[in-house]
Design a protein around this nucleic acid. Sequence first.
DNA 1: ATGACAAAGTCGTCCTACGAATTGGAACGG
DNA 2: CCGTTCCAATTCGTAGGACGACTTTGTCAT
Lengths: 226, 226
Amino acid sequence: MSALDTALHGLRSLIADSALRPGDRLPSEGELCEQLGVSRGSLREAIRMLAALGVLETRHGSGSYVSELRAADLIGSLSLTVGLLPMEGVLELTELRRALEPHATALAASRIDEQTLDHLDGLLDANEATADLDEQSRIDHEFHMTIAEVAGQDALTSLIGVLRSRSRSYRMSDPGDAAELKLHSDAGHRAILRGLREGDPVAAAAAASAHVAYTEYWVKKNSGSV
Amino acid sequence: MSALDTALHGLRSLIADSALRPGDRLPSEGELCEQLGVSRGSLREAIRMLAALGVLETRHGSGSYVSELRAADLIGSLSLTVGLLPMEGVLELTELRRALEPHATALAASRIDEQTLDHLDGLLDANEATADLDEQSRIDHEFHMTIAEVAGQDALTSLIGVLRSRSRSYRMSDPGDAAELKLHSDAGHRAILRGLREGDPVAAAAAASAHVAYTEYWVKKNSGSV
DNA sequence: ATGACAAAGTCGTCCTACGAATTGGAACGG
DNA sequence: CCGTTCCAATTCGTAGGACGACTTTGTCAT
């Protein structure tokens, strides 16, 4: 086994065996090098890998710590990489959204409170009023992420956020298409909000499903980027 | 910006800007050090991070290469870390399965062929016949992953695999409970297969949903590990 | 008690050196 | 001319040392 694997496996075992628990500080790099029998360079590479995956966090001058190991955080580590996916990959992710967003919307329908409903309503008003594409994108994102948060499943919210972060950056190349998309999109948002306000999980989920499917249709048709 | 961030951002940009495409070989470490203006150690740490996330692959003596950047592979990188999640985290993941597995099962219902149906049937026969817990676990895994594959969405299959890989390792502490679980579990499997064979996506999805919910119930009730 | 300060500990970065694996081409034999 | 063998160059893997940057802690003077 290579030195890097030794270090990686060693660190992973320390956590898996609960010798190190969430929030704990790791021994210093020097100590770990001795314990695991690898050089500092190899050890640091292993630490970086676990840090990239959201398992460890390193603080300069202080030490390395085991993260809280929340499912949402580990899933969030994907956000660094989904931005590199080619077009086909984005469509695969959209397919995941077709399963997740209706689910989240249905959950939200039975938990959402009056105040949040009003907030969402205000977002849609603002979205329909502005012509700024960046602003529309920002509001759209907040609308959907708010619903995901209301669903109350952190891992679900995080995953939806990761998946949305990619399709979000696409723009219609044809202005006419963009206008048509916005028209349908606004209607879709209203339908979702209606389902939420009526506390109707089935209606809300159906509206969310249609909304994602419609988005997917346009992304597929219009492969413009950035 | 730290040297590590410089290297990380530099590599990421090379891929994002399509200067490096899937399958391409990166310049040697020495060249990259010059280009990016960082030491070899820092560069290697950045490479390791991207490798951990499934973006790069390094081959000893040959060089580092950009991966195929398939969504399924990037999602698969989570499998190294979900094994470290505590109990609460596993329940969060099960909640995700409640959305994903019915979706996959519904898709599978409209695509599955006779041969695969017979294969699944054989798996259930074998599962009901054996008393070996490891064997049951293996068959259960193959049954569900086969359905996920038939759904034809690689990213979905990969994600379900990652999520299942965790709950899979749990065992009932009480033998009576285990027997009861198996009884219901077998019935659930049969219900799913029935839906698939009849090409009924709604029935299949409902059966899958009930199956996951039932699993979740037992995992919640019985917090035994390993 | 409070604040500034100094010292120790820890991570961040760079450098050099050499071992291990792969690769490509040259030399050889057919 | 073709195939094989072997060597040398290239590249990654690992180790160790050195020093700077940052944090933490404890001390000291106010």
